[in-house]
Design a protein around this nucleic acid. Structure first.
Lengths: 336, 336
DNA sequence: CTGAAAGCGCTAACAC
DNA sequence: GTGTTAGCGCTTTCAG
């Protein structure tokens, strides 16, 4: 097999425990032996076995990444790529590696989580987005396993470290932007009703309308997947209405792109006939024709802060639960 | 601590080795004891510790994912997201989990690799793209560590399992497409010259021109990063030429989008004044205005086949080295 | 400041 | 079929 701590100990004429201490850079070891041991390591090309270390020290220097939605969907959205970039930067900075589990069905995903959590393959877990009834979240919470949620928990709000935007306000402001543009018939195209983020944004949207004394119409609120096709479906339904909306609040750029495409195909001019405000402000918002007015939610930060909070939570489990709110800002382009 | 194999053994009145065998579903165990042990596991809520298993069995059921380019760049390109989807599907199907290491500098990335490889955190590694002189590739090759390359190795071609497109032919066909459209002044906008994929495509491009008796001009060949900004830089330089090209072969959609943007800003009509053929056929090719003619390289398959090959290579190390070529096809849209 | 020795939780010969 | 036992490679008391 490969070279172990024993070989190093033998060559350096010390005990294995001393070698171990040198690896951990224990200050109680004299500089002399430190050098001796390090030389031996070099000579043998020694590199510590992380697995053995993990077993003995009960820590892995890995973080789990859980996507509680089918990978089919998540992996098609550039939003996720940016989030991943933020997460990976944070992990890299703290010398953690990332372990991903994925799955197509809820069961597959859940089993994957159990495997890495109970299998102790990770020191903590990042949960991307939460549902109203979230099995995985409950599982982690009950086991008291360190985790951070990107999004807002439905239950145990002040018992779960989470990183989120103020989605109520963001949607509220986005809707108001549309109102100031003179729109009164504003539709809401959101993701699944099971997601807390969707519900938050829906509330923000409703509040804006109510404040403006505009009745909220159920027919104007549709829910689809965060895909271009989702946006297409949604807008088709809305345009078929006897009294179609003149503006739409779309909670994802990819969906908005679908909306835009349908409008384009139907010869509906944007923003003249239909105004659109979108969410996430991904690269696509800037690239589309016309460029999308989109809510910047600072996705990169969302990911980065999530890892940072998680690592802090792991190293100081007794610190109080943290809640980080990432700022948002509307980027106005040409669809409004 | 949590419940271990010993607790199960005690409750079921068997030896730990028996429990271990039940976990591995060893056929030599009688159905009776199997049931007895499983019941005990259930009762205690036992779940095997993956780390301990790994240490004892010298296998982790994890695969490493190495991005040999700065994450800043990779994580901005939707191409990568699709690749990741393919990889993750393959891994999931085979019950492997994915471990990602990233880094900003070459050194960071290299150190990350050493850490997971020598640290034995993974059973094998997927290397995304290769450079002409590739330290990481050499390292893995010399250590005889199981890995698969997505792309073409510069050295040891038939000693390294790799999954790739026929990039020479792909670029060749793309160029010929432009030639048949009547273009003779065709530029090449590619990625870094260090990447084998760039060099392959450049060769395919040159061969097409030479066959058509068109001299290859060095000024027409530019190399930039796979970013929108890279495309913008490139096209600006080309348009400043005394005799600017009328068509461009761009080896990435994101770059092509940058090209398109500059053309748009300058009032240059596409495809009338400048024709563009791009590569990768990501979602963006379809979304851009005008939609990009782009080379479909079946990115999802590229990722999926890579994992499959790697897993096979791990389980049967003595099988011959495999080389998988994923087909390509030009998707003609409105930029040519 | 350093060494001896007991484990971390599991697997895999080797017995019987 | 099942138990005994010796590790996997490292960390961490406890001595000294």
């Amino acid at each position: 097999m490969s070279v172990t701590i024993k070989d190093v100990a033998k060559l350096a004429n010390v005990a294995t425990s001393t070698v171990s201490r040198v690896i951990a850079n224990n200050p109680r070891i004299s500089d002399g032996t430190k050098k001796k041991v390090r030389d031996a390591m070099h000579e043998l090309g020694y590199h510590p076995n992380a697995i053995a270390r993990s077993l003995a020290s009960q820590s892995t220097q890995s973080l789990g990444l859980i996507m509680p939605r089918s990978t089919d969907i998540v992996f098609q959205n550039p939003f996720f790529l940016t989030l991943l970039r933020g997460i990976s930067e944070g992990a890299q900075n703290a010398q953690y590696t990332l372990l991903m589990t994925t799955g197509k069905s809820d069961k597959e995903i859940y089993d994957g989580v159990v495997q890495i959590v109970q299998g102790r393959k990770v020191d903590g877990v990042i949960l991307l987005s939460s549902q109203v009834e979230d099995d995985i979240l409950s599982y982690l919470y009950k086991r008291k396993f360190p985790f951070v949620l990107i999004g807002k928990p439905y239950k145990y709000k002040d018992k779960i470290t989470h990183v989120d935007n103020d989605n109520f306000s963001a949607a509220n402001e986005a809707t108001k932007h549309l109102l100031t543009k003179g729109h009164t018939k504003i539709a809401f195209i959101g993701g699944s009703r099971k997601l807390t983020v969707t519900m938050e944004r829906l509330l923000g949207y409703r509040e804006a309308l109510e404040t403006a004394d505009i009745p909220v119409r159920d027919a104007y609120c549709v829910h689809e997947e965060f895909l271009s096709s989702g946006g297409q479906e949604a807008v088709k339904g809305l345009l078929d209405l006897p009294d179609p909306p003149s503006a739409m609040l779309v909670t994802d750029d990819l969906m908005a792109l679908g909306v835009l495409r349908v409008c384009n195909d139907l010869g509906i001019s944007v923003p003249e006939s239909i105004a659109i405000v979108s969410f996430n402000n991904t690269m696509m918002a800037d690239m589309s024709r016309p460029p999308l007015t989109s809510m910047e939610i600072n996705t990169l930060d969302l990911g980065y802060q999530a890892v940072t909070s998680l690592i802090q939570h792991i190293s100081q489990p007794n610190e109080p639960i943290k809640r980080v709110i990432i700022p948002h800002s509307l980027v106005i382009r040409e669809t409004t």
